[in-house]
Each structure stands twice: as C-alpha cells, then as structure tokens.
C-alpha cells in the first residue's frame, strides 16, 4: 500500500469521483485557480475545467444555496468551506434547506450534496478560527455527519459521501492534512455509519472521532507502555452513529472515556454517554469520563490554548481515572 497524506487522499477521492460521474462538481472559495486554501483540490481545475471546479466570491450563504439548488435538479455538488467556521454564514442553507428538503417535499426532492472543509482548531488561530462543529450538525435529522481521522478513512469516506444521495457534512482536520497513512492503490470505499476499532485493548474503551483519533492512538501507545491496554473506537461517522460498535467495546472493557475536540455542553460525548448508559448500565465499573475542550472560546496565547484543548495527557489521565489508578 502507498503511504499518502490525508490531503492527497482527499484529492484522490475528489478526482476519482469526478471522473466517474459528470454530475459531480466542486465549488468554493479558492478551490480552482489557487488549488484550494489547503491544496486539497490541487490540479483539479486543470483536469476538469472551470465549469466543474468553480471559484466563488466570498459568499458562503450564497454558494451553499447554489449547491442546494443544483442538487435539487440532479447535479451532485461538493461545496468546500475554507473552514467550517465560515459555514456559520451558510447554516440556514444547510439546516433549513438541504437537511429538510426531502422531508418537507414529502420525499420528492433528495439532496445529493457534500459540504466539506477543515473543522476544529489548528495552532494559535484563536477564537473565531478554532472551533469544532460536529455537534451542531449532528443535531439535525436529514444530515449525515462524517469525521475521518486517517488518510485511509478520509479517502474512502469522501467517496462514499459523494456517492450518497443525502446531504453529508464532511469534517476534515486542518492538523490532519499533512498526516500520512496507508492508502490502497486499488479502488475502495468506507461505508458511512460504520465505526472502526482502531486499537484493541480490553482495559478501557476510548471512543472518539476525527482529529482526536490521533490523540487517542498516541495516548493508547503511552498507556500500553504502562501495561494499560485500551480499545480505541473510531466512530468515523457521527450521524448515523454506530451505537453497536460503542456498546460492544464497552461491554467488553466495562470502562469508557469519550474524547472529542469540541465543547462539553451538548457535545457529541454527551450523546455517546447516553447510548452507553442505556445499553451498558449493568456493565459499567466506573462512571464514564469525557475529555473535551475547556468551556471557553479558544484563547490565542500558547499556554492557554494548550490548557483549553483536549490532548494526550488529559486522555491518559481520564483513562487512569476510570480505572481507579492513582496518577
């Protein structure tokens, strides 16, 4: 298998799906001439032309709605947000238009559209540019929400998202674009809605997704050195969530830590914990602990930012706590 960056894996997925289906087009700010703000769309303009790789004005609400309209009449738009922070200007189109069109039309207009871009914090970008939005979109019936953490999953899930006949929110990680991993030469897809057991342990389950998969894996490596073996359940898709993968792991380990990039209140972890208490109540040997961003806007100063973010030490501490191990 080739070793490929997360960025190139996404690029391959876009290229392959655009070759396969003429209805697929990519639209967003700087996607064409500039090759993408994060170079995910590199080379696509040259290959597919300006009708299929479309630079837009800075008009998130507008071009998200253009995607929705085009999807209603049979095209399959991929709408790139330079980052998901800017998608707030388009949330009306995503929530009030894309997510509800099928339902309020009584099944007449489905919405084969992908909204994608980097989600979550990078480094010292401070409050307006460092936010993880998964719980906002996962709240909405009518959307699928995908957050791949590895190049393999990024490519396979983006291909599935583009082929999906429903609106898919595709959350990439700015800090993941340069990460590398194995990606098969031959064609494959990763199904939406299926979690992946990224590490098998037995002492405790870490349930996570997206960029935090990397954090969980690093924590798992360090814990293993101390003889603590954990399951890392990578949700990969946040909506629909693979509840069985969560409960199977927790019933085995009897302990769980839920790790997410976003804020605590009404976060993804709250939902995961609810599934656990419903299905694994009698299996738990300790209360479930959540690891997440501090309940503040992201600060700029390095030390404060570090303190605000979920990370490897916080994850390790949480695992030890649910195992009643003195730190």
């Amino acid at each position: 298998m080739a070793i490929v960056t997360y960025r190139d894996a996404l690029n391959q997925a876009l290229r392959e799906e655009m070759h396969k289906d003429d209805r697929v087009f990519l639209m967003g700010e700087e996607v064409a001439v500039y090759n993408g703000a994060y170079k995910v769309s590199k080379g696509l303009l040259e290959e597919f032309g300006e009708m299929r790789v479309v630079d837009t004005p800075i008009t998130e609400l507008g071009f998200a709605g253009v995607g929705v309209g085009a999807a209603m009449v049979g095209l399959r738009p991929i709408i790139e947000f330079m980052t998901w922070n800017f998608a707030l200007l388009a949330i009306d189109q995503i929530v009030n238009a894309a997510a509800k069109m099928l339902y309020m039309s009584g099944g007449q207009y489905n919405m084969p559209i992908v909204f994608r871009g980097p989600n979550g914090a990078a480094l010292q970008l401070s409050a307006q540019h460092s936010q993880a939005w998964e719980s906002w979109f996962a709240h909405i019936p009518g959307l699928k929400v995908v957050a791949p953490g590895t190049p393999y999953d990024a490519k396979g899930l983006l291909k599935s998202a583009i082929r999906d006949d429903n609106p898919v929110i595709f959350l990439e990680g700015e800090m993941l674009y340069n990460t590398k991993g194995e990606v098969p030469e031959e064609e494959y897809v990763v199904p939406i809605g299926k979690a992946d057991l990224k590490r098998e342990g037995g002492h405790c389950s870490i349930i996570t997704s997206g960029k935090m998969v990397l954090t969980a894996m690093q924590a798992a490596d360090l814990l293993a050195k101390e003889g603590i073996k954990v399951d890392v359940v990578d949700l990969r898709t946040i909506r629909p969530m693979d509840v069985e993968a969560i409960t199977t792991s927790v019933k085995k380990t009897n302990r769980a830590v839920v790790l997410e990039e976003g804020w605590e209140i009404c976060g993804i972890g709250a939902q995961v914990v609810d599934y656990i208490q419903r299905d694994c109540f009698d299996y738990l040997d300790a209360p479930v602990i959540r690891v997440h961003q501090a309940d503040v806007p992201m600060p700029y100063a390095k030390a404060l930012e570090k303190a605000a973010k979920p990370d490897v030490p916080k994850t390790i501490a949480a695992v030890k706590k649910v195992m009643y191990i003195e730190a």
């Binding site: 507008g62 071009f63 929705v68 309209g69 085009a70 049979g74």
Partner: peptide, 10 residues
C-alpha cells in the same frame, strides 16, 4: 433565492 441561482447554474 440562492437555490434559484443554483438551478440556473445546473
């Protein structure tokens, strides 16, 4: 209104 622009695009 943006939906109409999108249909025009299509």
């Amino acid at each position: 209104v943006p939906l109409a622009t999108g249909v025009g695009f299509a």
